[in-house]
Design a binder for these strands. Structure first.
Lengths: 162, 162
DNA sequence: TAAAACTTGTTGACACGTCAATGATGACCA
DNA sequence: TGGTCATCATTGACGTGTCAACAAGTTTTA
């Protein structure tokens, strides 16, 4: 933070630029692919994927938020739109009067089943096919270590950091 | 796309999850750091960083959009907000009546100078410090190849992919 | 048990992104 | 010259994310 900042040298700038561009570009490319090949956005896909792994295609909103590591309000806004589009249903939770059970509708099920193959192919073709197995493992090592550093420093969780 | 989809095995899912979580989490962590330690968002920082490398701290909007690989409308919306906050000025371009010259104000200059050390430290501490030089190079190789695959397949550019 | 504290989910204000439409100007070429 | 086409920037509609405030229910605890 002070004047003894360790600035990046040329090579480090190149590495950083590569990472930053990928972080920026991959997510939007993934979103474009989903929106073109299905009727789902990336976030809608995430929610339906979580539901499809739950028994009966049903989860409490709280648990979806926890699984995806999302803020509750973010999920709430999205679920309202998804319910309006007929992708999910919301029912009161019998155990806990505060809660809601979110379940996939038949339309939601159909949407994710239609979207999944293209989504997987996208990942296959753009992450795994271009890399050797050794490179794939190196990528995992790097992403794991970076994520670990961010967690250690408290930057991973949204909300207050200090 | 067909029924012969090559699904991901366990290990591949682990690699993919690591990448996806990093892509999701890194950007928001970076944004949080900037917003906490300065008065700038990540996108505002990008614009000011581009301007600070131009002569006189001035660039045409078109060139900023090209440098950052952004849509013009995205830049236009942001510049309107930044101008309202006093971070940039917009002046008509003498050569081309369609264009605008965007320049950093003194406040914009002060904001990025104040934000830069913390930003660099964040990258240093969360990307370079956790990785060995060999791992850094492996990361660059992986991001480069993935980006290349996305470009080849036409997924990199926003807009129609046909 | 009553008060305090926490959990769950919604809402509203606002920042930010994409897309499509618009208007104005510049470039090209027949 | 005049018409066509491309370029530059803006705008509005809307999807999406964060944050803070809120209402209502549940848990803790004194």
């Amino acid at each position: 933070m002070n004047s003894d900042t360790r600035w990046l040298n040329e090579h480090e700038q190149e590495i950083w630029r590569g990472l930053r561009e990928l972080i920026w570009g991959f997510e939007s490319a993934l979103d474009r692919q989903l929106i073109r090949d299905s009727e789902l956005s990336g976030v809608e896909y995430s929610v339906l994927a979580a539901l499809s792994e739950a028994e009966g295609g049903t989860m409490r909103a709280r648990d979806i938020a926890h699984t995806l590591d999302w803020e509750r309000s973010r999920l709430s806004h999205l679920l309202k739109r998804m319910a309006a589009r007929g992708l999910v249903d919301r029912n009161e939770c019998p155990d806990d009067a505060r809660g809601f059970n979110i379940s996939m509708t038949a339309a939601g099920q159909a949407a994710i089943e239609q979207a999944a193959p293209g989504h997987v192919s996208f990942v296959r073709e753009n992450v795994f096919d271009p890399l050797t197995p050794a490179e794939q493992d190196a990528l995992l090592a790097a992403t794991t270590k970076i994520q670990h550093a961010l967690r250690e420093a408290g930057w991973w969780e949204r909300g207050k950091v200090d």
